[in-house]
Computed example of a mutant assay.
Amino acid sequence: MIRTETTVDTAVELRDVVREYGGKHARVRALDGVRVGFARGTWTAVMGPSGSGKSTLLHCAAGLERPTSGQVMLGERELSAASESALTALRRKEIGFVFQSFNLVSSLSAEQNVALPLRLAGSKVSMKDVRAILTEIGLGERLRHRPRELSGGQQQRVAIARAMITRPSVLFADEPTGALDSRSARTVLGLLRALVDDSKQTIVMVTHDPAAAAAADSVLFLSDGRIVGHLTRPSTAQVADRLAELEA
Rank of each mutant, 00 (worst) to 15 (best):
I2L: 15
R3F: 09
E5R: 14
E5I: 12
T7W: 00
V8Q: 06
D9A: 00
T10S: 11
A11M: 09
A11H: 06
V12N: 01
E13F: 02
L14Y: 12
V17D: 10
Y21R: 00
G22M: 08
G23C: 02
G23F: 00
K24N: 06
A26T: 00
A26V: 00
D32F: 00
G33L: 03
V34F: 09
G37S: 10
F38S: 08
F38E: 14
F38R: 12
R40V: 01
T42R: 13
V46S: 08
V46G: 07
M47T: 01
S50Y: 09
L58K: 12
L58A: 09
A61L: 13
A62L: 01
R66L: 14
T68R: 04
G70Q: 08
Q71T: 02
V72W: 05
M73S: 03
M73Q: 07
L74Q: 12
G75C: 00
G75M: 00
E78I: 14
S80K: 09
S80D: 11
A81N: 09
A81Y: 05
E84Y: 03
A86C: 00
R91D: 05
R92E: 05
K93S: 12
E94G: 04
I95M: 02
G96F: 14
F97L: 06
V98N: 01
F99P: 06
F99I: 07
Q100R: 03
N103Q: 15
A110R: 02
V114M: 04
P117K: 00
P117G: 00
L118Y: 06
R119M: 11
L120C: 06
L120M: 14
L120V: 13
A121M: 07
G122M: 10
G122F: 13
M127H: 08
K128Q: 14
D129V: 12
D129S: 14
V130W: 09
A132K: 15
A132R: 15
I133E: 11
I137S: 10
G138T: 02
L139T: 01
G140R: 14
L143V: 11
R144K: 11
P147R: 07
R148Q: 12
G152E: 07
G153Y: 03
Q154M: 10
Q154T: 11
Q155N: 04
Q156K: 07
R157T: 08
A161T: 11
A163K: 05
M164R: 07
M164C: 05
I165L: 12
P168T: 01
V170E: 08
L171T: 03
A173T: 07
D174H: 04
E175H: 11
P176C: 04
P176L: 05
P176T: 09
T177N: 04
G178W: 04
A179W: 08
D181S: 09
S182G: 03
A185T: 04
V188M: 02
L191V: 15
R193N: 13
A194V: 03
V196Q: 11
V196Y: 05
D197E: 15
D197A: 15
D198I: 03
K200C: 08
Q201M: 12
V204L: 04
V204N: 03
T207Y: 10
D209N: 10
A211M: 07
A216G: 02
D217L: 03
F221Q: 08
S223N: 11
S223C: 02
D224F: 10
G225H: 02
H230F: 14
T232K: 14
P234Y: 05
S235G: 15
T236P: 10
A240I: 01
D241Q: 11
E245L: 10
L246V: 11
L246T: 07
A248Y: 10
